[in-house]
Write a protein that binds this DNA or RNA. Structure first.
Length: 225
DNA sequence: GCGACAG
DNA sequence: ATCTTGTCGC
């Protein structure tokens, strides 16, 4: 199964070259704007298509202020380090269908905490021009010290000796998440926004709601509000 | 050469 | 991601 991915990676070498080009467009810099509307995007695979959802919340009240979904046929298998080929386009479709443009976006995956500095969050950032951060449930790359399981604490994660992201504990005694900037923000911004958008669960609210919306059924517009 | 490997 | 019931713990 691991060998299969090696074969796919070889077959996908052209996409890797493209990925290296796109990585040059990523801009990591401090976010100046004040954040109020935070969006979360996630996808599910209910068959032969990708079903993506985007949900925007007001971090001041945690109310959902907008949501949208987008579906596209599946065109790629899952290949580690090339996740965006499989679900990126659908995520963008849902994100760009929102009526209210969010200040920042959280993606269910890695930002620059990636072997080639270009995770799914970078893809969404470069293609939307919006500030984006990646929040992954598990590790793809990098080394780090174990994190103390106390909400708000984190440890830096390095790839090739370079600081790329952080392992952040979003709740006491719960498995931490991997946070990294994807575009137009830095690591501090990504950490602050992730914590600001986190409610009573391990996963930040925008992502939890997007995951839920992507999972159930619906058409191709805003759900109800 | 042998593992590891987001969702 | 997806296939799936009950169950241990705060």
């Amino acid at each position: 199964m691991t060998k299969k991915n090696e074969l796919l990676r070889t077959r996908y070498r052209q996409y890797i070259e493209e990925q290296l080009e796109l990585a040059l467009k990523v801009r990591i810099k401090p976010l100046k704007r004040k954040v109020r509307y935070v969006a979360g995007v996630d996808a599910s695979f209910p068959g032969n298509y990708v079903r993506a959802a985007a949900v925007v919340i007001d971090v001041a009240t945690f109310e959902t202020v907008d949501e949208a979904v987008g579906e596209l046929p599946v065109e790629h298998p899952y290949v580690p380090t090339l996740l965006y080929l499989r679900e990126g386009p659908a995520l963008l479709k849902a994100l760009l269908s929102l009526r209210r443009t969010p200040d920042v976006v959280l993606v269910d995956g890695q930002g620059i905490l990636h072997p080639r500095r270009f995770g799914e969050a970078c893809y969404i950032g470069v293609h939307s021009g919006m500030p984006v951060a990646g929040v992954a449930k598990s590790r793809l790359a990098g080394r780090h010290r174990p994190v103390k399981l106390k909400k708000g604490l984190w440890e830096p994660v390095y790839v090739e000796g370079e600081l790329r992201g952080a392992v952040l504990c979003t709740r006491d005694n719960v498995k931490p998440v991997y946070v990294s900037p994807g575009h137009l923000m830095d690591l501090n911004d990504a950490l602050n926004i992730t914590l600001q958008a986190t409610g009573s669960y391990r996963i930040p609210e925008p992502l939890r709601r997007a995951h839920k919306l992507a999972g159930s059924s619906g058409s191709s517009r805003t759900g109800c509000g």
